[in-house]
């Protein structure tokens, strides 16, 4: 399945007829100095879908999802998330929208001066104004139980392994019950067994929380296990799109090696 820039959207919608679009990106451009990173990306994320964005390092995958939450402002193009144009929102409205988007960072980004419990309680206190100790503890325990790390509640982030940190990072985003999950390289730097655990976790999050997810990765095994659909970002544009099985047959020179090795 190969889309040109112009018909990508139309065909994607046709292919997924009947499913609601929760996020759409149109003609997104972003450059850093002389380097053009995104050169007109178009894509849609459907309800309850796991969309994998595959590509080599430095192709702008992380930049793309950072634009979706307003961390990076693109040079041009539009991003609609849950019916709202991200770049037309006031700071207050943007904060409100961000509560519905969970972002799992590549390096976990746990607050290293706080315990795991405080990490999880922090967004609850700050966003929802929950200060009841028992309620906070229950919610933190529930989120940690979902990622299988209840026993780490009173530990510091430095005491956890890389895989555990990633899971706690996911738990911290789940605590706000987001509608969309954005995973930035969820398996990078992990051994194959831990990677598989993270892949299973991504699937179970979708099941339990009914989230739509974008998973940024260059790990083909992770893409295979977690994806409903894959978009390959090559040279700053979404060149190839389809299921894992469809992409396996690709003749795109930059994509072929992913499936070969």
């Amino acid at each position: 399945m190969r889309f040109t820039e112009n018909d990508t959207v139309k065909e994607a919608v046709n292919a997924k007829e009947g499913r609601q679009i929760v996020a759409s990106i149109r003609d997104l451009h972003k450059s850093f100095g002389d380097r053009d990173v995104l050169k007109g990306v178009n894509l849609d994320l459907f309800e309850s879908e796991n969309l994998v964005i595959l590509g080599r390092s430095g192709t702008g995958k992380s930049v793309l999802i950072k634009c979706m939450v307003g961390l990076i402002t693109p040079d041009s193009g539009t991003i609609n998330v849950l019916g709202k144009n991200v770049f037309e929102l006031s700071p207050k409205e943007l904060n409100k929208l961000r509560l519905q988007i969970g972002f799992s960072f590549q390096g976990s980004a746990l607050y290293d001066s706080m315990t795991i419990r405080e990490n999880l309680e922090f967004p609850l206190k700050r966003n929802l104004g929950i200060y009841d100790k028992n309620k906070l503890k229950d919610l933190a325990a529930e989120a940690l139980e979902d990622v299988g790390l209840l026993h780490t509640m009173d530990q510091m982030p430095a005491e956890l392994s890389g895989g555990m940190k990633k899971r706690v990072g996911i738990a911290r985003t789940l605590i706000l019950k987001p509608k969309i999950m954005l995973y930035d390289e969820p398996t990078s730097g992990l051994d194959p067994i831990t990677s598989m655990e993270i892949n299973e976790l991504i699937l179970s999050v979708r099941e339990k929380y009914k989230t739509s997810s974008i998973i940024i990765t260059h790990d083909i095994s992770s893409a295979k296990h977690t994806s409903d659909r894959i978009v390959a970002l090559i040279g700053g544009v979404n060149k190839v799109e389809g299921t894992f099985e469809q992409l396996k047959e690709t003749t795109e020179p930059e994509l072929e090696p992913f499936f070969k090795y």
Partner: peptide, 8 residues
């Protein structure tokens, strides 16, 4: 960034 995207 993590604080920013969680609206805190």
């Amino acid at each position: 960034d993590a604080m920013e995207v969680s609206g805190t």
